[in-house]
């Protein structure tokens, strides 16, 4: 259970660093190369707060092999009234789910 930050996509805004409830992400590097880095991947709770706050969808959520992970990953893109979820199988999107934030869970 953890996250992977794509260095090429990361714009170095630091929002994920601020939001992580475990203080697990830090800014590393200088100038244009200053990017967010997951410093403690085995201490991640999997709350995905970082993924929801990332403005460029540079962070993916995945399951560790020790809990049945199979190479898939999840990205969320929150907008005002909807959250777009994409499930990845290695590199390509296999499924997309939109959740209307104005609706309650049915269960």
């Amino acid at each position: 259970m953890s996250i992977k930050i794509d260095r090429d996509l990361c714009i170095g805004c630091g929002r994920c660093v601020d939001i992580c409830p475990g203080n697990l992400i830090q800014m590393v590097g200088e100038g244009k190369d200053r990017k967010a880095e997951m410093m403690y991947p085995d201490e991640c709770w999997g709350c995905i707060s970082c993924i929801k706050v990332c403005p460029v969808q540079a962070i993916k959520f995945y399951l560790g092999a020790d809990i049945g992970g199979n190479g898939g990953a999840l990205i969320a893109k929150p907008e005002r009234t909807v959250i777009h979820w994409s499930i990845y199988d290695q590199e390509k999107v296999t499924q997309e789910i939109d959740i209307d934030r104005r609706n309650a869970n049915k269960y």
Binding site: I48, L63, G68, G72, A76, W85, I97, I99
Partner: peptide
């Protein structure tokens, strides 16, 4: 997805 997305991911990736 609204509270414990790992479970949805587990179902879908499997």
């Amino acid at each position: 997805l609204n509270m414990s997305p790992a479970q949805t991911l587990k179902w879908l990736e499997a």
